[in-house]
Design a protein around this nucleic acid. Structure first.
Length: 176
DNA sequence: AGCAAGATCGGT
DNA sequence: CCGATCTTGCTG
């Protein structure tokens, strides 16, 4: 049975990030702001998983910035990078298992900075609950597309193992 | 209190 | 390839 248009519930996000990240491909991300109602399809994501992952912000333990990653799944983790771009992440997994999915691409907007710009994301979204918010959430959508994977982008500092592990997932938008 | 670095992007 | 631009986390 085809399921589409249902808001994804808490349980969906409380699974391991390596399950949730690729499963978000093809899903709708909805952003409401006043009369504007944006709806895009997620087409590129990255997984960041645990304190052992040297590319993950939790690799040095809990800090003021990353504390929301230690909560249970379904919350938004945003941070500013290079003083310019907001990065939009979705927290996954159980409490005290710091994990998140970075949204890198939606429809025609490629790159995490452009994603947040197009969705009007800023610091005020830190900790936002995707299962309760009235301004941002994810909706189900069944797709039939090949999921590709490769190394994560922009994390060379994390060493040869973590910078090469194929935790970036994407689909070709044309196949939707 | 000071400083270096950063899950990026757009323009040369 | 380089600069923008500013928060964060670490050091002293």
């Amino acid at each position: 049975m085809k399921m589409s248009g249902n808001k994804l519930p808490k349980e969906y996000f409380c699974r391991d990030v390596l399950e949730v990240a690729p499963s978000l491909l093809g899903k709708y991300i909805i952003r409401k702001n006043g009369s504007s109602n944006l709806k895009y399809i997620i087409n590129e994501v990255e997984a960041y998983r645990g304190e052992e992952d040297l590319a993950c912000h939790a690799s040095k333990g809990k800090t003021d910035r990353n504390r929301v990653m230690y909560e249970q799944g379904g919350l938004v983790y945003v941070y500013l990078i290079y003083g310019i771009h907001w990065m939009l992440n979705i927290v996954t997994g159980e409490k005290n298992h710091p994990q998140a999915v970075l949204i890198r691409g939606i429809d025609k907007y490629s790159g995490p900075g452009r994603v947040s710009q197009s969705l009007m994301i800023d610091k005020s979204f830190y900790g936002e609950d995707l299962t309760r918010s009235r301004r941002i959430w994810i909706e189900d959508n069944d797709i039939n597309a090949e999921i590709k994977k490769g190394p994560r982008i922009g994390i060379d500092y994390s060493g040869s193992y973590w910078s090469k592990i194929p935790w970036r997932f994407w689909i070709n938008g044309d196949l939707l």
